[in-house]
Design a protein around this nucleic acid. Structure first.
Length: 249
DNA sequence: GCATTAACAGCCG
DNA sequence: CGGCTGTTAATGC
């Protein structure tokens, strides 16, 4: 079962930016910060502090970035790769609450409420993760109105996304659920620049959309036939995002 | 009927 | 070899 597959994480390797790890180190933290909407409204020294406080770590695919129940001491950003918010029952059944592509920041809810992590955060493939210490996060909260605006937008956007998920789960057929689950990885507010090619297994799409892997396979083939995406080994390429969103009304 | 689980062969990296 | 894909068969709502 997927739960027991804990893969070692490579820790504390911000300095590895220097070595050539190939495509694995595609995106730098500086690039990611530049693309994050909330950095635009910061003063130069605020941005400086952010850059010196944020730390990065690399995680192999399938690794836990953090576990349910751990104290929340950082706001988390996906610099490169793909992670999921996951919840697992005692019997081992897993649900994915959200897939989080590169470029996005999340976990502000638990930081704001000073609560323990409510879900597992698991990498779906090799990923580089940024951690902004809670102190820095709170300092921005106290000192930057644009930062607060960004958080409001993000919380609002996510609320809409989760409401949509509940609606879709009850009203849409599996093909449409798969389509919407994939489209949700492309929310332009939450995820500024997601590449059209996503490396994610059909099994994971199943966890994300709430249907079986076999049914995901079937749905993907239908969507491919409709020209909305291309099915590839270990991933898909989205060709018609608007079309994916449109399915099922 | 339709989706799910289980099982398996074949392919990919 | 381990992981992923695409199929089929059996089972359940």
């Amino acid at each position: 079962m997927f739960a027991s597959r804990i893969i070692k994480s490579k820790i504390g390797v911000g300095c590895r930016l220097a070595d050539n790890h190939g495509a694995f180190l595609m995106r730098s933290l500086d690039q990611m910060l530049a693309l994050s909407p909330w950095t635009g409204g910061l003063s130069p020294d605020q941005l400086d502090r952010v850059k010196s406080d944020v730390v990065q770590r690399e995680f192999a695919g399938g690794a836990y970035v953090c576990r349910k129940g751990e104290p929340t001491n950082a706001w988390i950003g996906v610099v490169d790769g793909l992670v999921k918010l996951n919840s697992e029952s005692e019997s081992g059944k897993a649900v994915t609450l959200a897939g989080i592509p590169a470029g996005s920041w999340f976990g502000e809810g638990s930081v704001l409420k000073r609560e323990l992590r409510k879900y597992d955060i698991v990498t779906l493939r090799d990923s580089r993760i940024a951690f902004m210490p809670e102190a820095t996060f709170r300092w921005l909260l106290d000192n930057s109105i644009p930062f607060n605006r960004f958080l409001l937008m993000q919380l609002n956007e996510r609320l809409g996304q989760f409401i949509g998920m509940i609606e879709h789960e009850r009203l849409l057929d599996p093909d449409a659920r798969v389509a919407r689950a994939l489209a949700s990885l492309f929310n332009p507010h939450l995820y500024p620049v997601t590449e059209t090619k996503i490396q994610i297994s059909q099994q994971e799409i199943g966890y994300l959309s709430g249907v079986s892997r076999q049914r995901v396979n079937q749905a993907l083939q239908v969507l491919e036939k409709n020209g909305m995406l291309r099915v590839e080994y270990g991933g898909i390429t989205v060709l018609d995002l608007a079309g994916l969103k449109r399915i099922g009304g």
